[in-house]
Design a protein around this nucleic acid. Structure first.
Lengths: 358, 358
DNA sequence: GTGAAAGCGCTAACAA
DNA sequence: TTGTTAGCGCTTTCAC
């Protein structure tokens, strides 16, 4: 007699066994048919497929994976899901994943190392076929150690990982040349004749911040450019007010260099709203070249990183067999000279209107 | 005697049994300890956790899920992953998911109904706990039928689904008031005194396009405003050139109404580059109020939809038990009057410079 | 070409 | 408090 669950309208899904029974074949034959393997007559295979289709059967990937197969999941961990830097990388990853029949799980760490570890564990627990970690690492080697260990175990168990912008994780890495980018942007400002630059920086616990800041400061020091460093949270949120405040504190500023585009854009907008002209009164430059950078008015001078291609390439690395030792590829940045930078005013630096002070 | 796999340096992960053995307890005790269930002495539980930690054990969620548990996966299907409309929704979903300990799988359909079905099947196959489908549906009821059927099966098997902007799917729905949004924006243009409007539209196979277009056309017809409809692909890519071309074809145009912000922004930029002033020569308005809309110069007049909140709310719906019949909630749009719209030139409509013709 | 049966790693009765 | 054991739904030998 039939199954206990026959006629059940409960919460249980159809199993392959149900399909097999309905098609009058064995479990093995049903499995082979549905996966298009050889060793089944075309006739039988077609019938099984039709029955499955008609019944609305959907395979259970967990059973599938447990029984031996690999999953088709790629994991992506980003710092902040709503930051264009990461959405553009994510788009690249998702597109590349799709071409390989992988589906992408997106997790975000909010720049919290502990949460990042949790996400990593979760992806490992799901036996994701590939894991990509994007975004700056932490200067504190201690914080990186546990992630490194997790990834090592993960790869030892057959997983593959690639990182974007993380140096210490012991897996294939795509490394944006943050220092080189900073050199290029800083030199650009120097060449324009700027002599007083405010740098909008982020937490120096992040390697990206260190690299970019280091490069910029080096150039300014060498060239005798006076500069102030203002620490913010590395996001758009705090950058606008910070920029306006900095211009009040150091009215001799002729240019603002934000260490990422989100902050640069926030600065652009904040200055506009304060009646400060860019680049007339003050020049503004950023890093990354997110998509909107060139759409703004004035369009943003920035050091371009090919974000979507980086995402694509990271997935590429992570779906290729591991090399004998981790691959490391440096990604060059390209200076995009646009409208937001120009020579400083010939009649001296801007004096911020005190009217806009709080 | 030990296990065959002991000392193995192969590709096989540690199993719970390995941990149990190492800790000198049974499988059940190990399982209980690791999941923090009661019925284990604190001492034993702590020891097991430590052993697992030291060994680098990571649970296999597939085995876990097969054995009875629910997954902690939420699926999100969007049309286009790199469109800000969807990234903002995605951010809302991811944040809300995180609060519930869910991880989000993002799939994108590229506005291809077939691919959407594949993604839906994949999510169902993974026994995702919740599925969210975001983005316009298809006017052709036939195309919606299969998705509807899949979702019905999925929910019958214990899954939960919610959709954003899809009317026909038979599950909980968040429905942006696209028609109302169009009425508001169109009326705004009428009130400003515009008499000749070019509408940048999308494929009329999409319900969102139909709703927005219908609303706008109704207002213009009622108010005696002349209007042309230009069909594009509903993305930024085609909108810029289309807008410029339209202004050449219909030089009496005093305002461009794009049916989404991506197109409106592309229009803004294209006009600027063609030397056409906004709103001086031509007004521009859009739909959605993506984050950059207010950062542009001129800032964009648009009908605001609370995208991130919609994502959050959709996940909310999809993690709540199903109601006896699908919930439907209309989301109101709010007109954001900004700088890109103004009364038409008093000295008559713009005559496009023929110099910018190809 | 097809079928029977042994796992995959875990959870959840049920026993002790 | 702890242990034993029967599945969960599938893939995959190994027989036939």
């Amino acid at each position: 007699m039939g199954e206990v669950r026959e006629m059940s309208n409960s919460t249980t899904s159809l199993r392959l066994a149900d399909v097999a029974e309905a098609a009058g074949v064995s479990l093995a034959t049903a499995s082979r048919s549905l996966r298009g393997l050889t060793g089944v007559s075309d006739e039988v295979a077609a019938r099984v497929r039709k029955v499955a289709e008609d019944m609305g059967y959907v395979v259970n990937t967990h059973a599938q994976s447990l029984a031996g197969g690999a999953t088709s999941i790629a994991g992506l961990i980003v710092h902040q899901i709503d930051d264009p830097y990461f959405t553009e990388i994510a788009a690249g990853v998702v597109h590349a994943a799709e071409e390989r029949g992988l589906i992408v799980q997106v997790a975000h760490s909010g720049r919290d190392p502990q949460r990042e570890l949790r996400q990593l564990r979760s992806l490992a627990a799901q036996r994701a076929r590939a894991i990509i970690v994007a975004g700056s690492g932490y200067v504190d080697a201690h914080l990186e150690a546990e992630a490194r260990r997790l990834l090592a175990t993960y790869e030892r168990n057959g997983g593959r990982a690639a990182v974007i912008g993380r140096h210490q994780l012991g897996v294939d890495a795509l490394l944006p040349d943050n220092r080189g980018a900073a050199l290029a942007v800083a030199r650009h400002l120097v060449e324009l004749g700027h002599t007083d630059v405010t740098i909008l920086s982020g937490p120096e616990t992040l390697t990206t911040v260190q690299d970019r800041l280091g490069g910029a400061v080096q150039v300014f020091a060498e060239e005798g450019v006076r500069h102030h460093v203002v620490a913010t949270d590395f996001t758009a949120a705090g950058a606008g007010p910070a920029a306006v405040q900095a211009l009040q504190a150091w009215p001799e500023t002729t240019a603002v260099l934000a260490l990422n585009d989100s902050m640069a854009i926030a600065t652009l907008v904040a200055l506009r709203r304060s009646g400060i002209s860019v680049p007339g009164d003050v020049s503004v430059a950023g890093f990354d070249d997110v998509a909107v950078a060139e759409l703004l008015f004035p369009s943003l001078t920035t050091a371009r990183l090919p974000l979507a291609e980086m995402g694509r390439e990271a997935l590429d690395l992570a779906t290729r067999p591991a090399a004998s030792r981790p691959r490391r590829k440096t990604v060059a940045a390209q200076l995009m000279r646009r409208e937001s930078t120009a020579p400083p005013r010939s009649d001296g630096p801007l004096r911020v209107r005190t009217a806009s002070a709080s």
